[in-house]
């Protein structure tokens, strides 16, 4: 029990190392804020007028949960880049020689990226309400639940990114490796269009995509529609991804050293 407490404390210390920097780096903060705003504004005003989705009177109510979902998943790429950056510097050697929990280096990083993603989410939410006019059609509880599903999934993908950041040799490689699969993952899905409109061979791929499941669950909850199994299935996906990739990442991080 004591060991778990220390591991959590060490993880928080590590997370704070990354979080303290956010308010200090004004340029980074501005760009990190502009990006989600741009996503919301561009998609809504560029595609908004030309796409109709059956069952949704207003495309914005369909689209915005998809943009939330995509932006948060993109946010997970910072984990891999950050870990590759840490590994390229001497600091990780120091951390490995300290009497701290080894897993804290990775947990701290993923948690700080989760906090960063929560900030991103609130920025997008504000812009979506005004000027776009997005509304929670369901209850506030449903909206909170929807947000938690999205954040949980992006946290799970942070662990996939962590493993990639540990596996590639450089920050540059982590950057490309981290983003490249995000495009098919988020576009071959229900984030922007109904998969039924896709070519016959692509539709089952989009339907099976866990990102589709998560997006559908969040969208249903934000709009007060029946969510069905999607909420449960998306939690299972996220928990499964965390279980597999967190243990692989932590093992990989520890491998060359004495346990």
């Amino acid at each position: 029990m004591n060991r778990v407490v220390w591991a959590l404390r060490d993880s928080w210390t590590e997370a704070m190392r990354h979080l303290r920097i956010i308010p200090r780096n004004i340029e980074l903060l501005i760009f990190a804020t502009i990006q989600p705003i741009m996503f919301v504004v561009l998609f809504v005003y560029v595609f908004g007028g030309s796409i109709d989705v059956p069952g949704f009177a207003n495309y914005d109510q369909f689209l915005i949960p998809g943009i939330f979902s995509q932006s948060l998943v993109f946010g997970s790429a910072f984990t891999g880049i950050g870990i590759a950056e840490d590994l390229s510097k001497g600091l990780v050697d120091r951390l490995r020689s300290l009497p701290m929990a080894r897993s804290a280096v990775l947990i701290g990083r993923t948690v700080s990226d989760l906090v960063r993603n929560i900030i991103t989410f609130f920025v997008m939410l504000v812009v979506s309400f005004w000027p776009i006019g997005f509304r929670f059609e369901g209850s506030l509880v449903e909206a909170v639940l929807a947000t938690m599903l999205l954040l949980l999934f992006s946290y799970a993908l942070s662990w996939v990114q962590a493993l990639m950041g540990l596996s590639v040799g450089s920050v540059e490689a982590a950057n490309s490796a981290g983003f490249i699969w995000m495009f098919p993952l988020t576009f071959v899905s229900s984030a922007f269009v109904d998969p039924a409109t896709m070519p016959g061979w692509l539709e089952p791929v989009a339907d099976a995509n866990p990102f589709t499941v998560v997006t559908n669950a969040a969208r249903a909850l934000y709009n007060g529609n029946p969510v069905g199994n999607d909420a449960l299935v998306s939690v299972l996906w996220s928990v499964g991804i965390i279980a597999v990739f967190a243990s692989l990442s932590i093992r990989k991080f520890n491998r060359s050293t004495v346990a």
């Binding site: 190392r17 920097i21 200090r24 001497g90 120091r94 020689s97 009497p99």
Partner: peptide, 17 residues
């Protein structure tokens, strides 16, 4: 690890802090 200090070849400091 509780009894040692290590200074490696590359300064192991967090530059952003």
């Amino acid at each position: 690890r509780t009894r040692i200090g290590l200074t490696g070849q590359y300064a192991a400091v967090e530059e952003r802090l």
